[in-house]
Every structure is written in C-alpha cells, then in structure tokens.
Design a protein around this nucleic acid. Structure first.
Lengths: 340, 340
DNA sequence: TATCAACACGAAACCGTTTTCGTAACTTTT
DNA sequence: AAAAGTTACGAAAACGGTTTCGTGTTGATA
C-alpha cells in the first residue's frame, strides 16, 4: 500500500518549498535546471499526479459535466449518452450521469446535488413528469447562477438555453408522405401520451402530410398507448376495428409489436400494410422483415450537445453569445416494412 | 445572475466569523439561539449550499464512484449500470461513467484520470482488449494505492478484489439439459471469441451437460462468430451443413439472428429447432416466437456491485475484510422458442 | 472578593494546488 | 565600489469548507 503522493511530500523529501516543486513540475523558468531535474525525477519515480479536487477548488472548474436523462435502458438515450461521453472525453471532461426515471423530484434533487460544485454544466432531457408539470424553476435557477445547460430532445420553449432537437415534424411528414406516395391512404398513427413536445411535433407532421395530400384526418386512426403496460389487446382491437394500409409508430417497440400482431392477423408486411417506426435501434434491425425506421442519430445529437456545452463553458467572454437551437436531421431508412 | 453564496459571504454580511456561520448551520450548541436563527434565516434566504468540492478536499472523499464499462449500447451493461446508479444514488453517491470501448488504453487512461481524487472507488467490467492482453497492472496499482475496486461479469482471477459474477457455467448447463430433457441431442453452441471468461464458462457448462448425458461433444456444432460483422452467411452455412435440433447462443442478437435464418430455411421454431439465448433484453421479448432466454439480472448485479463497493469504502476499519466474490443466479426464462 | 465554570464566539490550521510577490545572493554595469 | 539587474527560490494568499483550540465576558460559587 503506497498512498498518493502530494507536492508537500515531495517538498519535504527534497528539502525545498512546495512552490518550488509546483513550479518545477510546470517547467517554470524560475527554477534552475538541476532543481527541476531532481524534482521531476522524484515525481516521476513516485508517480506523482496532481489532485483533481484541489485543482477544481483552485480553478473553480471541475471538468465534469452532468448528464440527466429520464431513462438509460432506452436505445435512443443510450446512443445520445455515448455521443456525449465520447466528445466530452476527447475534450478532457468526465461525465456524471443521473437518471431522473421520469420523475420531477429526482430530476430536481439530482441537479441541485450536482450543481453545488460537482459539475461545470448540464446536458439534460426533461423527465415526463417535469414536462407534465411544466415547472422549470430548478432549471431557471441554475441558469441564473451562471451554470450553463444544454437541453436535448425533450425540451421546452420556456427555458432559455442552448438546445438540440430532431426535426420531428418534418421527418414525420416525410414518412407519411412516403406512405402516400406508395399508394396508402388509410394511415394510422400510433403514439404515446408521454413524450410531449416530441410526440406532438410528430403528430403535427403526420397531420400536415395528410392535409397536403387532401386526405382527411380521421381521429379513429390515431391510437394513443400508455407506455409501460402490455398493449397487445389494445393494438389487436385497433386493427380489427379499422381498415389500415400504413402505420407510423413513434417508437420501435410499438412498431415491432404492431408488425407482429398484424402478421398474426394474417396481413402481409409490407404488401397489405406498411410500417415505419422511430429509432433505428436493435429491434428495427433484427425484426423480419427489417423495419423501415427513422434514424434519430442519437450519437450525433449527443456530440453536438456536448460541443455546445463545452463551447459555452470555455468561451472566455461568457457574456453575450446568444443561445442556439441546433436541429439534427433525422433520416428515413427504408427497409423491409415499406414499399420502396 | 446571482452567483453561489459562500460561508465567507454570509459571515461578512452578518458580521460574524466564518467559523460561527459554519457551526450555526450545523446547529452546534456552541452558538446562541439568536445567532443561529439569524444565520439560518439568512442562509435559507440566499439558498446557501456547501460546496461539494471544498467538502471533498477537506474530507478526502468525494462521494463519487467511477464506473468503467466496455460499452453502453448493450442491454446487459445498461441494466447493470442502472442498478449501480440506483443504489449509489440512494446512498448519496454520484456516478461517473467512462466507456472503455473495449480498448485497453482507454480503460487505463480513464481510470488514472479518475483515480487522482475524482472518485472514491471503481466498479468495472474488463474491456475485451484488457482480457486479451491479460495485463492488469493499472488495476493492481490502484488497489495498491488503497482505492477499492469491484469487478463484475468480465473479471480475472489475477485481480484481488471484490467481484460479482453470473453462474454462467451452471446456467448454460441447465439450458442444455433442458434441451436434452425435451428430446434434443444435436445441440449447437453459438459463441463469441471476445468475452473470454464469460463465454468460456458457458462453453464449459454446455460441454458438461452433454457429457452428463453421454452425448459426444462435436466441435463442428460449435460456431464461433466475430462480434461486429454481419454473420448472416456464416450462420446460414452452419445450418445448411449441420443437422441441428437445438441451439444455445451466448447473446440475444445471435439468437434472434439464428431464429430468423432458421425460419427462412423452412424450419419451425421450436418444433424443429429450439433456441435459448443469453440476456433477457428487448430483442428476446419482441421476437416471434418470443425467445426463451437466460436472464442475467443485470440490475441486481449492479446493485450488488455498488453495495459491495460502498460497504468497503465506508467500513471504518478498512483493513482486513477479506474480498468476496458474489454469484448472481441467472434464470432460464422459458418462452416460445423452446419446448417446455 | 477572588476563583471558576459556562457560554458564545473568533483565530487559525488543514485539505492540495497555483500564483503573486518578496528577497537573498550573485552578476553586471558604471 | 556603489547601483542596478538577474537568478533561484520561499512565504503567503487564495479556493470553501470543518474543526480544534483559545479567549473575553458572564454568572455562580467559595
């Protein structure tokens, strides 16, 4: 057991002052070559590394960024996180993750915890509860304290900070237009009540595409599913009661579930019914037929969010760079569940 | 913009000393009630929170734990991480994640980075490269410095620390025994070259079950696949050249891929061929038929790892508690891809 | 009235760095 | 030989807390 060595230890051992050691290790020209060599050799031998905590205290920056996401067992968030971690790491930052678990309280508590010095900035995606409550005082207070925040995917217009979002509206419109172009008219939307801003935009895109093609919006063709329950019966009923030619689902779980139920009901995919999902995850790639889906480019999104944050943290003036909202362009990947 | 307030600020404002403020906020009985009330009110009004970094420096503990995993876009690691984060959070710890990306160098650099004061202990699963190189000096040095480490899943006997593993051998044997009990004799194993200790144990379990039932081990029935390439052709050939009645796959991707290929080749699952995979992830649950699989209880594993680590970090004596290796019992979940 | 607790508070050390400033001891210039 | 400039280093403050130890002012006790 050889515990970590400090400047003080080196100083004592070599009979010089702490300042001399510090300067020598930073190669200051204030120190003579012999002394520097001696100190460096000693430090190297004992594998001296400066203490990050002490540095953080001194420099008033931790080189840590806090990431708060609603859920980690979710392909999209996982890939975004990967992007964040990758870029942050390259730039010499560490990442502290907190999972809000879709809970407002957890989000608040975790952020306040981290904000007391542990991190230099936040990247987060709002929890479902926070979106429902529409209460952003915790975020506003942090911004007020001068802690930069970057919001991604689940954002709110009420919060004045950098943001990264997907062009949900446009890509949903594109997906539905593709259905229409390949001959479908009775197009269903399967959505969730939870991801507010995101699913709203997707729905609007869906509606816009229909209207642009003079197809009437039939609310019976929009199925809103709870997120954490078994929806098999709801979905089955839905398809028994409605004649449908194409389905847009707001996530890949709904999409494969629909596909499987449809196939069991005797329809062929994509000949009878086409399907497009959101999230180019593992499910989409391993289903049969392979699912046509909307790639959200989570990793890119994460990288961009990290870049925005780090830029802002490191910009010296810090003052009046206006807040940006960057848009990631989703891609419609046409695979086996659509007619292409 | 109102920046964070410190003890010094309060002291100056209220015209008392810093020590008095500190004591008052900790409710020390050294301080008179009136002074305490005054200070507390002021602190509350200005939303005073002690600076974590200063505390860390003083207390020589950060209440952060470092988690180093090879990959995050992987259901098993994700669930383990979830378990760690959950337990750690309950115990007042934050989690700093680094992704080694299966690279030895990244693992080393990240850990050295964090070890200089940023964290109190590590939880990690070895990268593939580290296992291949069999070089654990970085871990040994950290242990030597008194930094506790808990290893999970991808471990090594050479490292003397707490560990959490799955009973891979037994559960693989159980899975293969189930195949045999339901009438299969020609049983394939589809494995990977990468996760050394883990896949080795699984293979041994496979072999043990065969031997126990006096079935000869046929090496042609063991297919080793590279991890990151498209294996469709390899798998297809494998099934065209071998008569097989049951398959054990070491992950769920292989399993659904096999299932899909088999079905295309005209076999029925599970009537003609049974399949069992590892990892009870999203793929297993959404395939058709639903995949029988081995649940690794990642979340439990993560919680246990965190518990081991925190126990060790908080045990006052710190000295001679011997290192433990805890075993998580996997569960064989029988679903539609096996005859049950 | 001198002694002694109890009370309420402040000074200062400490955690491990960085950095500014001061200063002996030389060396160079005039 | 005095003045000025270098060189090579140390002392100390600062970051934001906690904690030990002193100490001046009370009030009670002998």
């Amino acid at each position: 057991m050889k515990p970590k060595i400090t400047l003080k230890d080196i100083a004592k051992e070599l009979d010089v002052s702490i300042s001399t050691v510090s300067k020598a290790l930073k190669n200051s020209k204030e120190i003579s070559k012999e002394t520097k060599d001696k100190i460096k050799a000693f430090a190297k031998f004992y594998n001296y590394r400066p203490n990050n905590i002490a540095l953080s205290l001194k420099n008033k920056r931790t080189k840590n960024i806090g990431v708060v996401i609603p859920d980690i067992v979710h392909h999209f968030f996982t890939t975004v996180f990967r992007g964040i971690e990758k870029y942050a790491n390259e730039m010499g930052y560490n990442v502290i993750v907190c999972i809000s678990d879709e809970s407002f309280d957890k989000e608040v508590i975790n952020m306040e915890m981290l904000a007391n010095g542990s991190i230099d900035g936040f990247i987060l995606s709002l929890s479902a509860e926070t979106q429902k409550k529409n209460d952003f005082t915790h975020l506003k207070e942090l911004l007020d304290q001068g802690i930069p925040i970057v919001l991604f995917d689940r954002i709110s217009a009420e919060i004045d900070c950098d943001k990264v979002v997907l062009n949900d509206f446009e890509i949903a419109r594109e997906a539905v237009s593709h259905f229409i172009a390949t001959g479908s008219k009775k197009i269903a939307l399967i959505t969730t009540e939870r991801y507010f801003n995101v699913s709203e935009s997707r729905k609007e895109g869906y509606v816009a595409a229909l209207k642009a093609n003079e197809i009437e919006v039939d609310n019976r063709l929009i199925l809103t599913l709870p997120h954490d329950r078994d929806n098999t019966n709801l979905i089955t009923e839905f398809f028994q009661h409605n004649e449908i030619e194409a389905i847009l689902c707001v996530n890949e779980m709904f999409a494969v579930q629909c596909m499987s139920i449809i196939q069991q009901l005797g329809y062929a995919v994509p000949e009878d019914i086409s399907i497009i999902g959101f999230t180019d995850g593992i499910l989409s790639r391993y289903s049969s037929p392979k699912l046509s889906t909307i790639a959200q480019h989570g990793e890119k999104m994460g990288e961009l969010a990290a870049k925005l944050l780090i830029n802002r943290m490191e910009s010296v003036q810090m003052v009046e760079e206006p807040f940006k909202t960057e848009v990631i362009n989703a891609t419609l990947i046409k695979r086996g569940s659509t007619i292409n």
